[in-house]
Design a protein around this nucleic acid. Structure first.
Lengths: 116, 116
DNA sequence: GAAAGATGATACGGATGTGAAACGATCGGA
DNA sequence: TCCGATCGTTTCACATCCGTATCATCTTTC
């Protein structure tokens, strides 16, 4: 079933999760980087720079640089498409999966703790 | 009652909301700025620079600059505390309330549209 | 094959965020 | 009345992000 959430609960959920992210001082992703990461892990592959840029409505360099940053953190990886060597296939990593697992757990926990 | 949310739903919710924020290309707040804004609107006043810095675990200049940026967007306002003129009282604005109302509506809508 | 098109990466200039340190204004106790 | 403590801001050096324009590489078309 769908998730019932009231506006005030939505705001408190965002505050709680954002606060835990800021305080942990751990991986600090931009909103765009986070959306890119989530798209890679939630939607069916293959993912390309051009496809992600179109989906997010941003320019290609934004995607390239976000992948640079997240690749440095080992959250995603890239390899050339052997079939068409112009393309770059963006792949998931163990560390990226782990990161999102922990993130989602935090969200679920914060949601469960919301006041009525 | 509390909100029941499964991990995959949490990720999809974040992706959907983030995507709509990026695509709208409207107000583009940092995660920290967003947490500050939510805290100002959700928790009881008065709010001070020092209090927000302590709550978020960041330095005071971070708060000052975030308030500069959001003040420029008319999302918050500042005034000196008459009782102790060293303090600055951070206040809500009409535009800030409207912004968070619209944001929460978007979250609620995305939550309602989640697959089971 | 040569030219045109597509794809991702890079260079550049501008804008903005960050932490550490120092600063001016204000308060309050000796 | 001082003089230290507190508060918010500013300065500095650095890092990162953005969009535009351009580039190198690869593919497709003629």
């Amino acid at each position: 079933m769908s998730v019932r959430l009231r506006p005030i609960q939505a705001l408190r959920l965002w505050q709680e999760v954002g606060l835990s992210m800021v305080r942990r001082n751990a991986v600090d992703l931009t909103q765009r980087q986070m959306v890119i990461l989530l798209t890679i892990y939630l939607e069916p592959p293959p993912h390309t720079v051009r496809g992600l840029a179109a989906k997010l409505g941003v320019t290609k360099p934004v995607i390239t640089r976000a992948l640079d940053a997240m690749g440095e953190l080992d959250l995603v990886s890239r390899r050339r498409d052997p079939a068409d060597r112009r393309n770059v296939i963006i792949q998931r990593t163990v560390r990226g999966s782990l990161f999102l697992d922990e993130f989602s757990d935090r969200v679920v926990e914060a949601a469960g703790a919301l006041a009525p």
